[in-house]
Each structure stands twice: as C-alpha cells, then as structure tokens.
Amino acid sequence: MRFFLCAFESMYVGIPVDTVDSLMVYGKEAGALILRDKSSADIYFSLPLFFGARREALRHGIILKGSAGADGRHVLLVPVVEREEDIPEEEIHTMPGILADIGRVSFISGIRFTDSAMTLFIDPAKFINNILSENPDALQGTHKGKE
C-alpha cells in the first residue's frame, strides 16, 4: 500500500495515498487544532498540535478525497510531506489489543518501526470524525485565507 510519509519531531505519520486528492503548499504555523477558512469553508486540521508536538511551520497540506463540496474540503496540515513510499502490509503491525478498536484511537490503523523511528498510519476519515467529536466547539476559529 502506498503512503505519504510526513516527518514529525520524533516520528512519521503515514497517510494512505488513495485517500488523498492533492497536496498543497501551506507555509505557516497553525494557530489552532482546527480552523475553518471563512471564504472557502475548507477545514484545516493541524496534525502536530493534535500529537502534542511543538509549534512549528506547517509546510504542506494534504487535501483529502471526497471532502469537496458545500462544507468545504478537509485539509490535514503537516510539517512536511517527506516522501511517498510503498509499504508492504507485513511491515505494518496492528495496535496492541488494549488500544485497538477503541473509539478514541481507532483512527490509528497500524504502526511500523524502522531503526529508531516509529510511523503511525492513520485512517483520515476516522481521524476527522474523532477530532471533531472530541472538539465539538473547535470550528469557531477562523483562517485568514490560503497563501
């Protein structure tokens, strides 16, 4: 399966390529976990803020498939999309039992360790459902428009 691998401070996050419509250049810090662009209605989700990473420039946005429409597109903001890689299924481990199939972290579809780096593979649709249900008031923030 092919993934976009996004480099974070101490790990990678893998997003399945087949869930992605396109990539965009962003180039700013995220002010909030979730932001809505008032003009386009697009919703931006900051992955580093969600994972508790320090505030850093978000160079790329990942525009998800099937999210265009009146409600705007869903865009995952990441520090950088480092590369695209084909990763065999046998290299991806499921979550430990106590963390698997639990609503709050069920968006993590697998984990891979290589050398000392961990990659968390996420299901973007589940991630967005999860983050919106955990933060029901978060859409009040506004975005100043794309660069």
């Binding site: 969600f50 430990p96 106590i98 963390l99 968390l120 955990e134």
Partner: peptide, 14 residues
C-alpha cells in the same frame, strides 16, 4: 516511549 494523545495518564504510549 512514543506518547499517543487521548490516553489515560497511566497508559504512557507505545
């Protein structure tokens, strides 16, 4: 340990 969000404080991560 690799921390994950949304876990109780006694589950430190992976």
């Amino acid at each position: 340990v690799y921390p994950l969000p949304l876990l109780p404080d006694y589950v430190l991560g992976i």
